[in-house]
Design a protein around this nucleic acid. Structure first.
Lengths: 339, 339
DNA sequence: CTGAAAGCGCTTACAG
DNA sequence: CTGAAAGCGCTTACAG
C-alpha cells in the first residue's frame, strides 16, 4: 500500500455483507465458524473478508456476546521480582502458548504495582472472563472472594483450606522437598539445614514440611531452619549467616533453585567445597540450577506445562465445562554435581 | 458479602441513573468527569455508583467511543530473551507506571511467539489505540507500515532512516559507546577489541560506530570486532574466542552490560585479571553490571524513564497532540572496578 | 440454511 | 446543566 493512497474506512461486518450479497447474520455465522451456512455463501463471505481485509471489532463482539474473550494473569509480586524469577517466565510462556490456539487474549496484572484495589476492581469490572493467579500469598485474601464472581485458577495452592470451589494446578511440594532432602541424607550427611521459602505461601510451607519429614524419618534433628523469600539474594545472605554461626552444617536443602544458587555463592566465597564439605539440593530446574557452581541437584517441575494446564482449565471453566479442582503435576529428580 | 447471598445482576449505567434519579447521559458525564454537571446531581450519581458498586463496561464504552483505551507493547523477541533482559523489565515498569495514571491498559505482545502476521493483524484489528515497539530489528519492516494506521512510538531508533513520521525515544548510542571506549583508552590501553551488538538493530550498529570513532580518534586500530546478541552467553563465548586467538587484547568495550558480564566470566575462567590485564567497559547499568566480578564501569541509561516517556508520547499522539519525533535521553558514566 | 430485528451498555451531538 | 434519541459493530433467538 502506498503511503499516499487514501486510507479506506475500516471495513465492518456490514460492508462484508453487502459485498458478499448476504445478510450480516450470515457473515457473523461464517466469522464464528457456524455450521449452518451453505458452502456457496460461505465462499462468497470468505472472499469478501479477504478482499476487504476485514477484522471483527473486538469491543462490539464482546458487548454482543457478553464476554470479553480475554483473561487476566494476576501475579501479586512487584515487577522486579516477576522478571527476575524464571518460574514466572515459564508459566507465562505456557499460558501464552495455550491461549494462542484460542480466541482469548492475555492481560498481565502485576498487582502490587498500583493499589491492589485497582486490580480487584478491574477483575470485577467485567474486563476479563476469568483469571489465573500465581504466587498467591496468605494475605491476598481479596482474590479468594472474587472466586464467586469470576472463574479463577490458581498456580500453586492457596492458604485457605476451608474455601470450596477453588481450582489449583500444583506439584506435590511436600514430596518434592522430601525427596530432595533424602538425596542429601543419602550422602551420609547428618547436620542438616534448610533455607525455606516464604511461610505465607503454600510452596514455602509445604517444602519446609517435606524437609522436616525427611529429616525426622532419618532419625535426625534439623540443625537450622531459616526463612528466605525464594530469591538468590536471600539464599546468599542466609548461607552467610549459617556459616558465621558455625553450625558445622554438612547438608542443605534450599526450597528454590534461586536460593540454592545464592547459597552456593556464599559457600564459594567462604571457600567451602561443594559437595565435599556440604551437600546441597533444591527444587526447580531453571537457569539458576543449571548455571550455579557446581550445578544443582534438584527437583524439576515443569512450569511451562503448568501454565498450559492452568489456561486450559480456566478456558474450560469459562465455557461451563466441569474440571477437577486439583491438578497435581509430576516432578522428577535431576542429579547433578551439588549433592 | 455472604457466599449464599443471591448474586445481584451486574449494575449498569442505567441502574445507576434510575437510582440517582437522573438520565443516563448525566451518569455518563460524571463517570467521564465532565464539568457540565450540577453538584447536586453529581453527588447523587456518585452515591448511587458507590452503593451499586458500579464499574463501567469497557466493551460498551470502547464501542461507543470508537477507541479501546488500551495500547500494545510489542517486543519482537522470544519469551526467554524478553524475561532474561533487565532492560525490558525496566521499560515495562516505566510504561506501566505512566499508564497507571491514565485510563489505558497495556497488552504485551511478544511477537515471535505466534506468527508475526497474527501480531500485525491484531494491531490492525482495532484492538488497541496505539503501539509501543521495543527492540526493533531491521527485518521487522511489517511494523513500519502500521505507522500509517496506528500511532506508534519506538524504543530505540529504527533502521529505516527514510521513513517519516516515526517517533522514537532513544539515547545517543554513538556518544555512549565512544565515552565508554575512551575510558579504556584513558587507561593507556592500545590493543582494543569490542563485543558489538546485533547489527540489525540501531543500538548494535551505533555502539559499534562509537567504539570505532574513539579508537580512531586515539590514533589506534581495533584489534578485534566481534558481533554478539546482547546476551551474557554471547559475551562469554566471544571473549573465550578472543582469548584463544591470542590477540593480546588489553582493552574491551562490550556493547551491553550483559555481554560484559559474560566476557568477565570468560576472563575469570581463563585466569585473566581485570582490570590489571584487561580493562573493560560497557553500556547499561543493570544487575549484570553491578553483580559482575569485578563490577562494570559502564554507561548508565534509564530504561524505566524511557518507558515512561514512550508511553507519554504515545498517549499524547493518540489524543491528537503534537509531540517531537526524536526524544534523546541523557546517559551518565558510572565508574566502577572493571576499567 | 438465511434474514429482519432486537439488543448488548455505553457516549454524544442536538435541542432546550 | 440536562435529557431523548441515535448510534457504535456485533450476535442471536425467532421465524421462515
Amino acid at each position: 500500500m502506498s503511503m499516499h493512497e487514501a486510507r479506506s474506512p475500516k471495513p465492518t461486518l456490514e460492508l462484508v455483507a453487502e459485498r458478499a450479497g448476504v445478510s450480516r447474520a450470515t457473515v457473523s455465522r461464517v466469522v464464528n465458524g457456524s455450521e449452518r451456512v451453505k458452502p456457496a455463501a460461505r465462499r462468497a463471505v470468505e472472499l469478501a473478508i479477504r478482499e476487504l481485509n476485514y477484522v471483527p471489532n473486538r469491543a462490539a463482539r464482546s458487548l454482543a456476546q457478553g464476554r470479553t474473550n480475554s483473561v487476566a494473569l494476576v501475579v501479586p509480586e512487584n515487577t522486579a521480582k516477576f522478571f527476575a524469577d524464571p518460574y514466572f517466565a515459564k508459566v507465562v510462556q505456557g499460558v501464552a502458548r495455550y491461549l494462542a490456539g484460542t480466541e482469548f487474549m492475555l492481560t498481565l496484572l502485576l498487582s502490587t504495582e498500583a493499589d491492589p484495589a485497582k486490580t480487584t476492581r478491574y477483575l470485577q469490572g467485567g474486563n476479563v472472563d476469568g483469571a489465573l493467579v500465581l504466587s498467591h500469598h496468605a494475605d491476598d485474601r481479596s482474590y479468594a472472594d472474587l472466586g464467586n464472581v469470576l472463574p479463577m485458577v490458581y498456580g500453586g495452592r492457596t492458604m485457605s483450606t476451608d474455601q470450596k470451589d477453588i481450582y489449583v494446578v500444583d506439584i506435590d511440594n511436600i514430596a518434592a522437598a522430601k525427596q530432595a532432602t533424602e538425596v542429601v541424607i543419602g550422602q551420609g550427611r547428618t547436620k542438616l539445614a534448610t533455607i525455606a521459602g516464604p511461610q505465607d505461601m503454600g510452596a514455602g510451607l509445604d517444602r519446609l514440611v517435606g524437609f522436616k519429614q525427611a529429616v525426622q524419618n532419618a532419625g535426625l534433628e534439623p540443625v537450622a531452619i531459616e526463612i528466605g523469600d525464594f530469591t538468590p539474594a536471600s539464599g546468599r545472605r542466609i548461607m552467610r549467616q549459617l556459616l558465621d554461626a558455625n553450625l558445622a552444617v554438612d547438608g542443605l536443602f534450599a526450597a528454590s533453585a534461586q536460593m540454592g544458587f545464592g547459597a552456593l555463592q556464599a559457600l564459594a566465597e567462604a571457600g567451602v567445597k561443594v559437595p565435599e564439605d556440604i551437600s546441597v539440593t533444591s527444587v526447580d530446574d531453571d537457569s539458576f540450577a543449571r548455571s550455579s557452581t557446581p550445578p544443582l541437584t534438584t527437583i524439576a517441575q515443569n512450569p511451562e506445562r503448568q501454565g498450559e494446564i492452568m489456561a486450559e482449565l480456566l478456558i474450560k471453566r469459562i465455557n461451563g465445562e466441569q474440571v477437577p479442582e486439583w491438578s497435581i503435576m509430576d516432578t522428577k529428580l535431576v542429579l547433578r554435581a551439588s549433592h
